[in-house]
Design a protein around this nucleic acid. Structure first.
Lengths: 245, 245
DNA sequence: CGCCGTATTGACTGTAGTCAAGTGAGGTGG
DNA sequence: CCACCTCACTTGACTACAGTCAATACGGCG
């Protein structure tokens, strides 16, 4: 069932049939959440690693005075915190944006999986490091880019990430976010998000309607956003890690 | 020699004498760098993990048009990219801010160390996860905090981190950064950094002079910054990982 | 049809950026 | 030892990007 994860990991390494079977089997303890529900709250000590099977979620942090920052987005195929067990308590929360179906993977299960499947271990490492690289890019995005560039960059990133899990159709992809959520992710106000979206639309760079994003000319949007996809580390050259069966 | 690292790791777990000796011995291949030199450049494929022994460095990313964002600071005791080996090429650069003394730890050396010393493995995991947590907090800082809060927050973080490696004396610590560097880290202009520093000074929250930062009332500065140190995960409760010798 | 959350618009404010001109302090060389 | 040079810091006047407040429009769903 976790085909999105498998599809993503195959961008890094070729998995054997046995690897894939093993990955299929981790999707136990499936749970469903409504939209706008917390999966994990700041202060919790999570019991297992979560894998998003369907829907979108986000990592976020709320300041005492109510300001909220979305720190990252989770989409199908994404893992939440492969290694949290080391830390005592969550320093942020994870909440859903749409209805979400999750698999909860117990710690031992994951350890067992990686012990038996070295290529999966490598691939999960890659997954983790890319997540961190995305986090760094968000710092650049918030620190240096203008509102227009910022939204454009976010759209490029989400589009490319969705493509790696097979959720892009032609030049369009799902984008189930409200303008408020875009604002919380980009450090802008909803009003300014709204106006900036209009600017992107009238420049013909995006079509955004009915929770669906269309990018008629990805290269053009990338140019506006100063988007360089290398931080997503998608060049499939893990030949030296390939399965030989 | 890498006493700062040892001191830091002991905030998470109690290390045995053997653990400490092993850590002492990884500081081979010592290299010295001038200030404002690149240690690793975007696109490089680094050969070893770097440990900062003395001086300050930073992770940064430069956009095509020249804008630069400092993504994180490295101070004595910090490790650069414990697990880069999985990825093909660096997606950012690491450069010095002051003269820096580094130890280069070959991959095998690190694997060997962790294989023999499970507590060190745990402690390095903690180190890695805290680094990522810091990265997330920077997203919150850039996305939600005002200029004043942002600088105040950065100072709180640097102060607390320096304290964990023993570099705080009383209520003051080294701060070898120019206003330009502060600007690149906080996504502000140098002019605005300058004015905001004056505001912090005249509020009596900081004394900043001669590359030295004094914080007369840390609680007050924390309140202004909305700084909550929990993301640094310093509560020493790793008793269950304690060495028994 | 009517309700509620989301999106849109306008007018105004304010924080932060820009440009450009000084001032100051530390280091070097004559 | 001092002049000078450079880099960092400081200041002022002006601009502009983004935030605030508040009213209104839209759209999907019961």
């Amino acid at each position: 069932m976790p085909h999105h994860l498998i599809r993503k990991l195959e961008h890094f390494t070729r998995l054997s049939a046995a690897d894939k079977t093993a990955l299929q089997e981790i999707a136990t303890r499936v749970q469903d959440f409504d939209a706008d529900a917390d999966i994990i709250r700041e202060g919790d000590r999570p019991e297992h690693v979560h894998l998003v099977l369907e829907g979108w979620a986000c990592r976020y942090k709320q300041l005492e005075d109510g300001r909220r920052q979305i720190i990252s987005f989770f989409m199908p195929g994404d893992l939440c915190d492969t290694h949290v067990f080391v830390l005592r308590a969550m320093d942020h929360s994870i909440g859903t944006l749409t209805p979400v179906r999750l698999a909860g993977i117990p710690r031992e299960r994951l350890l067992d999986l990686t012990a038996r499947h070295p290529r999966i271990t490598q691939a999960l490492w890659w997954e983790t490091l890319v997540t961190v690289a995305v986090q760094r890019e968000w710092v650049v995005n918030l620190g240096q880019r203008s509102a227009l560039e910022r939204l454009a960059h976010l759209f490029c990133e989400l589009f490319v990430r969705l493509r790696t899990v097979g959720l892009v159709e032609g030049d369009s992809c799902p984008l189930p976010l409200t303008q408020t959520e875009l604002a919380d992710a980009t450090g802008m106000t909803t009003v300014h998000v709204n106006r900036t979206l209009q600017e992107l639309r009238s420049a013909g760079l995006i079509i955004l309607k009915g929770k669906r994003l269309t990018i008629p000319d990805l290269a053009a949007l990338q140019a506006v956003a100063l988007f360089n996809p290398n931080y997503l580390h998608l060049e499939h050259d893990g030949a030296h890690f390939d399965a030989n069966d």
